[in-house]
Design a protein around this nucleic acid. Structure first.
Lengths: 188, 188
DNA sequence: GTCTATAGTAAGATAGAC
DNA sequence: GTCTATCTTACTATAGAC
């Protein structure tokens, strides 16, 4: 075969991400990851010399970037609070494919106390996401403590809805979460 | 070694449960499970001829029984709604060891689309738990639809708090959930 | 950059002694 | 009921050709 990349970096991340979200970290074998990307295992090692941990780490960081720079970035745009929320909600919905795509943070949180680097990154990212929602709520006029509590609660509801989707084999819990998100953010 | 059980059935379930909750289904190897129970792999196969799936299934059913017949059973006892709630909350707290013990449903939901029998059981159990909370809320005077919505929301918050505990490496999210549970159930 | 081939290890599972 | 020993398969990882 050729000497050039058969798959772009972003496409590669996307395909790896699907496998990890679906099978979890330990459940995803190199055979699975290779099949999903149409590469052989040795080719994956060429791109990720540290193997599966590195793949998971890079996928995780890509997810963080998308959440921070695209989904939650909507909350900092120049528009009314309501419009910013509905843009964010829309992007969140597409990020999780209406609840049919699991959450990598979620999966890793249930799997990876072993790998310290991954565990730290998960912790860091959860803090960033909550911080971003908290910042929005404070800008909107809520007190620091209320903003903090509420941001944590929203993250709990999001993660919980995704667990419920998998457990109930239905995307309804996530869709309900999406439907109530604006109220959950702005209610008095 | 002897011809008699080295470990009681309930102790066995308990030890297996810890491993599954900590490492997930695919992450838990027979070596792990054997080490935790002080049995050899072959001895585990004697008790669970179908191997790991069967262990997970039996652990799962034991957890369901404890949740239904002990934790949530508090909601059907003969006392005021407030007292029933605080008994249930107390038992829930001890069931999850103040948030330091992960949730098997949660872990399985993030891991086990593969095994259909486990997936069905998880779905069934989630339905039972929600149904039990819903029943309590209806008895307390809430409408059927409100009871339903609220019961689902509480299960989302519970699962979400446990995900957050693992992700943040802190038991605070679960403790906050416990603190707010009565309000979450009874608020107008 | 991708491949085939293969080494080495750990996994799940079984047979048979005690 | 538990053990040691073993089988087979699947996994991670590496070496080297193109």
């Amino acid at each position: 075969m050729g000497r050039h990349a058969m798959i772009s970096d972003s496409e590669l991340m996307q395909k790896l991400s699907v496998v990890f979200r679906h099978k979890g970290f330990s459940g995803a074998s190199l055979a699975d990851l290779a099949a999903a990307t149409n590469l052989k295992r040795a080719s994956l090692y060429h791109r990720f010399p540290e193997g599966k941990s590195q793949m998971a780490m890079e996928v995780l960081i890509a997810a963080k970037d998308q959440m921070m720079n695209y989904v939650l970035a909507a909350l900092r745009e120049d528009a009314s609070a309501e419009i910013r929320i509905s843009r964010m909600t829309e992007r969140l919905n597409s990020f999780y494919l209406n609840g049919e795509q699991g959450c990598f943070l979620n999966v890793l949180a249930s799997n990876i106390i072993q790998d310290n680097r991954l565990a730290s990154e998960v912790k860091l990212i959860l803090g960033l996401l909550i911080g971003e929602i908290e910042y929005f709520l404070q800008q909107t006029g809520f007190s620091k403590t209320l903003a903090q509590t509420r941001a944590q609660r929203i993250m709990m509801l999001l993660q919980g809805s995704l667990v419920m989707c998998r457990g109930m084999q239905s995307s309804k819990p996530f869709q309900d979460f999406i439907k109530n998100l604006k109220d959950e953010l702005l209610k008095q």
